[in-house]
Write a protein that binds this DNA or RNA. Sequence first.
DNA 1: CCGTTAATGCAACTAAGTTGCAAATATATA
DNA 2: TATATATTTGCAACTTAGTTGCATTAACGG
Lengths: 126, 126
Amino acid sequence: MEIIRKTKSVKLILNQFEQRDSAISTVDLIEKLNSEINKTTVYRILDKLEYSGVLHSFLGLNGIRWYAKCKNCSTSHHSDLHPHFQCTSCGKVDCLDIKITMPTIPNREVTSSQFLLQGKCERCSS
Amino acid sequence: MEIIRKTKSVKLILNQFEQRDSAISTVDLIEKLNSEINKTTVYRILDKLEYSGVLHSFLGLNGIRWYAKCKNCSTSHHSDLHPHFQCTSCGKVDCLDIKITMPTIPNREVTSSQFLLQGKCERCSS
DNA sequence: CCGTTAATGCAACTAAGTTGCAAATATATA
DNA sequence: TATATATTTGCAACTTAGTTGCATTAACGG
């Protein structure tokens, strides 16, 4: 899971993330690159990009996995404690630039968290 | 989705939730009641119990759905803004009795949220 | 340019959850 | 208590996200 070569498929996937700023679901990515990359490959590349700190992932509504660019992550540390927002109308997901104060809970050692907000995005509520 | 009859299957499922205080995943429930109830029925009953405000649901790690007893919910309003905690070691999930202050986000109308904390529970970290 | 090793495609699989339909059963009413 | 009716159930078949093993292909360091 360590070494990552700059293959055609890797470039195609990274290109998708450079084109937009919002998160992309695995399903969308597979659909979009369907004629160029096999879905197994998409899953494997996303895994590696997350592992190496290029992307971070989280679950949206319906348990589908989403990926977004990392801002301050590395292989050893994922600092993605920001919440995500999914529009229940258009389905689009964004990273929110808000810091979450991780609650301390007695008798439990919290190591990470996922915070998903749902509602209507600007475009869908107007 | 409205009317719910007190059938043998409904009683069996409610009984599972009365026996414990932590959340139960759909998968566990199906497995546990496997000899008595068909999985389709389990899914359908859980849907109805959530709809009618008896249970609330959320996604755990891996996108599996979990259900837990509601405390102050009704058909019209689900007041389950509390976070959930999943132990990465034993997989058990609990509701946390903590109030979340819903962040206000410019240009977005937030209607609900899911907050999942991960780490080690008391039993697994000692 | 070549050899090594990682990356890819493919096909088959797993697992969660859904759907349609016929048969069974809860419940209100007579 | 019997009956009508609408809800609930089981079953089988399906959908969809994600995974695995393996043989083939392609990066890239020397």
